[in-house]
Amino acid sequence: MIEMLGLPAASSFADDIDMVFSVIFWIVFFWFLLAEGVFFYLIFRFRKKEGVRAQYITGELKSEKRWITIPHNLILVFDVIIVIAAVKVWYTVKQDLPDAPDKQIVRIVAQQWAWTFVHPGPDGQLDTPDDIAKINELHVQVDRLHHFQLESKDVVHSFSVPVFRLKQDAIPGRVITGWFTPTKTGEYDIQCTEICGVGHALMPARIFIETADQHAAWVASNSSVSVASATVR
């Protein structure tokens, strides 16, 4: 449904989150229509009539109380449905950390008011001389598992990639690990979604989701080590 509103789903768990969103939306929409229908029906049914005096109803009779208790219990049932769906997705996205032999690890450092993305160089390892640090540019490969290590240099920020349906706070002093698997190529927005100071609105970034060949070419052309070796050749 969110895709129909114009925001693509570009991660492996985006559809799951959209499903929870849709479940909540349709349940609330159903109850909204029903409640408004009953409301307007009662207004019409018991409208002013000549010779009929208005009654004061205390709501203590069983036949009256069930107008509250039945919807109340039904809403509790629907709440349980929402909680089950949400917990399942929460576990998948936040509690579980899937692994794969070819996973890519990237470091994301938030600060007032910029993102630093540290990508592994040609060796595929972080914290080696060929790492590629980019300001406000994250390059990832489609259909490849990525782990991210999220840090903050100063205050609380929030790393949000709307097309991934991913949002994770960055807390100073902590390294928070998360994951995503991009499923669509393209260039999309990254936002900070935690008010982080006067420049909060001025720290947008972009994520570039590339095919394997495109990503390999980007790594080769941006790693200082590979550039240096290319120059030597």
């Binding site: 450092v109 007032q112 008011w113 910029a114 640090a133 300001i135 420049g199």
Partner: peptide, 12 residues
């Protein structure tokens, strides 16, 4: 990336 103060000024 190592210029923390400068990174604050760029968006400003």
């Amino acid at each position: 990336p190592e210029d923390t103060g400068g990174l604050r000024m760029y968006p400003m």
